[in-house]
């Protein structure tokens, strides 16, 4: 390589590095460092702040805060597992039982909710489930209920909404990975005397593991960080942690505590993602790319 060509490559490299550096530094790294700094400050007098971990202390000493946190985490894990259990048979059906047009049609149909705004989807559930809603009327008409039934504002409804919102992010990786499973492996499993259950356990699930892990990670993160679905379907008692962050930031204007909450949520989400990757021996690059 001649000297001028090499310097041209270097100039190229530098020019290409500028946007990525500006983006990551100004919008990701510095904001998070700043948020960490703000979370370790406590107001002693108006406009005077001191370094302290009191905000984190408040989180642990106030039951409402850490219970909301734990509740959000547990419900997110439950929603992720339920999504997996519901989506797996559907993904298997699309990937292995169908051929040709029907297959691509149903696969595209799975993508539909992604293209529709989450607000619209949640609105649909509200129309279906509220006291004057479609299901309530249907039940009265059949004779299941004597009066209007309110199905909004409880945990089961939040769950239905969360699973609905997450479904796509589970179905797509599962269909992709199951599609790559060679039918002859399944046939061989049966030839060797396996039944449906052993074939599922020893052949299909191990093959699908990377898809399962990446689906679960994405669904968990999206659920944990969700705001609309719990707040709209769960009402005042939804007790979702992102709503708590919003309250601290926008309603109470207590940014220090809000920043601490933000970090705790980020920490939890990163820990679970990291554990998922470790358990399945995958890397972030493989899962996302």
């Amino acid at each position: 390589m001649s000297l001028s060509l090499r310097s041209a490559v270097r100039l190229n490299l530098i020019l290409l590095l500028i946007p990525v550096f500006l983006w990551l530094l100004l919008l990701i790294i510095l904001p998070h460092i700043d948020m960490l700094l703000v979370s370790t400050q406590v107001k002693v007098r108006p406009r005077v702040y001191e370094f302290s971990f009191a905000n984190y202390g408040e989180f642990f000493s106030e039951p409402l805060y850490w219970r909301t946190f734990a509740r959000t985490a547990i419900m997110s894990i439950a929603a992720t597992l339920l999504t997996l259990v519901i989506a797996f048979p559907v993904a298997y059906y699309i990937a292995k039982m169908l051929r040709g047009r029907m297959k691509s049609f149903l696969f595209l149909l799975c993508l539909v909710p992604f293209w529709v705004s989450e607000l619209v989807r949640t609105f649909g559930w509200m129309i279906l489930l509220r006291e004057s809603g479609v299901f309530s009327n249907l039940f009265q008409w059949i004779g299941f209920a004597d009066g209007p039934v309110e199905m909004l504002y409880n945990d089961a409804t939040i769950m239905v909404g969360l699973i609905y919102t997450s479904m796509l992010f589970m179905v797509v990786p599962l269909v992709t990975i199951l599609d790559s499973l060679d039918d002859s492996l399944v046939e061989a499993g049966y030839d060797l005397g396996g039944n449906a259950f052993t074939v599922l356990r020893t052949i299909i699930i191990p093959h699908a593991m990377p898809g399962i892990v990446s689906g679960c990670i994405v669904v968990f993160m999206l659920t944990l960080g969700n705001y609309l679905t719990p707040v709209l379907l769960g009402g005042k008692d939804s007790l979702w942690f992102t709503a708590q962050i919003y309250t601290q930031f926008i309603t109470r204007f207590n940014w220090e505590l809000g920043a601490a909450f933000g970090f705790l949520l980020l920490f939890l989400s990163s820990m679970i993602v990291w554990m998922g990757l470790k358990l399945s021996r995958q890397t972030l690059t493989e899962t996302m790319g």
């Binding site: 990525v20 990551l24 919008l27 990701i28 790294i29 510095l30 904001p31 998070h32 700043d34 948020m35 703000v38 990670i217 993160m221 944990l224 960080g225 705001y227 992102t242 962050i245 919003y246 930031f249 940014w255 809000g258 920043a259 933000g262 949520l265 980020l266 989400s269 990163s270 993602v273 972030l284 690059t285 996302m288 790319g289």
Partner: peptide, 26 residues
């Protein structure tokens, strides 16, 4: 750098929002 580039996908949207809000206010 590639890992860093992927990070925004694993940060919940609410937190991206508040971190940028905090930093820009600073």
């Amino acid at each position: 750098l590639y890992m860093l580039m992927l990070l925004p996908l694993v940060i919940p949207g609410v937190i991206l929002g508040i971190s940028i809000l905090v930093f820009s206010s600073t």
